[in-house]
Design a protein around this nucleic acid. Sequence first.
DNA 1: GTTATTGCTGACGATATAGTCGAAACTGAA
DNA 2: TTCAGTTTCGACTATATCGTCAGCAATAAC
Lengths: 225, 225
Amino acid sequence: MMVAEKPNVKKPRLPRARRRTEATRQKLLLAARAVFAEKGLDMARIDDITERADVGKGTFYNYFTGREDLISQMIKEVLNELRREMQDRCRDLTDINELLNAIIGVHIDFFRKRWEDYVLYFQGRADLHLQVSYSGIETPFIDYLETIEELVDSAIKYRLSKPVLRRLACAVAGFVSGYYSFAVISSEDEDVDKVLSSLRSALVAGLVRFIREALPEGLSGRGAR
Amino acid sequence: MMVAEKPNVKKPRLPRARRRTEATRQKLLLAARAVFAEKGLDMARIDDITERADVGKGTFYNYFTGREDLISQMIKEVLNELRREMQDRCRDLTDINELLNAIIGVHIDFFRKRWEDYVLYFQGRADLHLQVSYSGIETPFIDYLETIEELVDSAIKYRLSKPVLRRLACAVAGFVSGYYSFAVISSEDEDVDKVLSSLRSALVAGLVRFIREALPEGLSGRGAR
DNA sequence: GTTATTGCTGACGATATAGTCGAAACTGAA
DNA sequence: TTCAGTTTCGACTATATCGTCAGCAATAAC
């Protein structure tokens, strides 16, 4: 007893150490999320992050080359999670109406549960408008738009042109984040998500009409219905 | 000849000097606009601004107590102009459909002509989500929402409740800025404004439906129509 | 137990930026 | 011209923050 499987281990590749370092990385990311939501991407000091993560300052630079790297990685991760959730929830929706509602719904749920990530998403997007911003931020957002496009595209029989799909994606993504950002600052006691849901159908109705008009002839969703 | 009106001047209050200092202030504001659009609110150094305005550093502090003050004033001014243009263009529109289209149209025109102000608008809004941001920024945005609400309210016979109006305002403002922000980063060669206009009617159609449902009974615009 | 490797630390040097302030330039009036 | 009031200037100080690095601690290998 208590003997076997030692000789054949070869290289389990530092299982415990590996877990430990991954934990530190997560501590840093978690701390960064909080600090970013508190002070913004630019005003957050590295010291703030390491102190909140309760690690030495040097440790930060073991995991990231600097603030730019950190932000780029975080945005990439957040957007990937958002994309994954969209894909999961929309996997087999073929009705365009349902699909759009689902896409927006995913965003609502996502933002509600993860305020810090929403702030990151918004701040990152704001930086996209600048002439000099953090590098490596743009492509994740493009990929994110493309995911929406793919979902819409696969739910529509007739192919929409690339530009039209892109417009739809911009409209959906823009509307949700835009509405949310205003609602959050102006209606304290209201249940923002609930309300957003009611407006959601308004937008969806409009978008479906937009799609119908963009199609060559009738035929919107999966068929005549 | 060349004599009169000297004794009675009292104090025209330095008309020329006044103009001169106002010019300096404008130089600073103009420079700040450009620098903010280039580096963002936080990363813009005061030196950047004064240098671009071609004034000494100390001059900056003659006009503003610091960066916070500058940003607060700029956002206030930009939003006031936006509100004024909305009020001008929507003065006597009583059809809710037309009105919503006009409101969105004003935003499109405004943003197109003034990229730096759009960036400022967006960056400022992003900062509203933070726990610590520039002070004095929030109320201008609320006022701006309320202007939209007033316009909508005055175009509808039946009174909508305050929360419903607020939701509409958030939807309109959020949609335009949100769509714009994505469109601008993703479709280089496209005419963003043109496209936005086409999507605009989609949103408006949805919103009008939303309003109809929120009303006690029929009666949407100025009458039966 | 000893050694090698890897991860963690926080004080430190270098740099960058905010805001100040006394002097200079300018303005309009007399 | 002279003068008082006002505006501008930019060198300077104080401070804040970055990123480094030499040493320490924890872990894995032997």
